[in-house]
């Protein structure tokens, strides 16, 4: 596919827009990116975009990773920087403004009351994230066991998350190496 050189300003415009209107995190933003980059601008094919999602969810912020991928495919290293920076710029600016207001005014009674009223949403948010991650994927005993094990290790033994995550990855790598032969036969 021959791609005309897409201007960096064009990339910046699109990702600034996505960064500014992408409320709700995760999947909501990915849908928005797909709408802009695949459907409207036709910068990437659907397959390429799926690739971006598959690689992007591995390490770091999924949505930021996808913007890096898209930017890179369009204009190389420069494109990747422009895309990621313009995607993050609106949220960084807004968070810093809100954080400075928060640090200044969180002692004001009415704002304190409002925050107190909203805090339970955080629990719902975290639990619904856990629910969504598990839905349809927690389908055998090993996975249920791992959930309980993680809760136990984190809450009772107070093991640090670093150790938990890294040892799980090690476990995953070992499992992958041991069962690779079996996987190849399947293919």
């Amino acid at each position: 596919m021959t791609k005309d050189k897409i201007s960096l300003i064009d990339i910046a415009k699109v990702f600034l827009t996505i960064g500014a209107i992408g409320f709700g995190g995760g999947m909501a933003i990915i849908a928005l990116m797909q709408e802009y980059c695949v459907n409207r601008k036709k910068w990437l094919t659907f397959d390429e975009f799926s690739c971006a999602i598959a690689f992007g969810q591995f390490w770091g912020s999924k949505t930021t990773n996808i913007s890096i991928f898209v930017g890179y495919q369009l204009r190389g290293l420069k494109g990747a920087f422009v895309a990621a920076l313009s995607f993050l710029a609106p949220s960084i600016t807004i968070v810093i403004i809100l954080a400075s207001l928060y640090m200044k005014y969180n002692q004001i009674p009415s704002l304190e009351l409002a925050l107190k009223g909203v805090r339970p949403v955080v629990i719902a948010l975290i639990l619904s994230a856990a629910y969504k991650m598990g839905k349809g994927r927690i389908n055998d005993f090993e996975k249920i066991f791992l959930i309980f094990l993680a809760v136990f290790l984190a809450l009772v033994l107070k093991i640090r998350v670093f150790i938990l995550v890294l040892s799980t990855i090690l476990y995953g790598v070992i499992k992958f190496i041991l069962f690779r032969g079996k996987l190849n036969e399947d293919n």
Partner: peptide, 16 residues
């Protein structure tokens, strides 16, 4: 595969 293995652990951490 790695993400799949991590999935239940992350759910557990979120609950914690």
């Amino acid at each position: 595969k790695i993400v799949d293995t991590l999935n239940p652990v992350i759910i557990g951490l979120l609950i914690a």
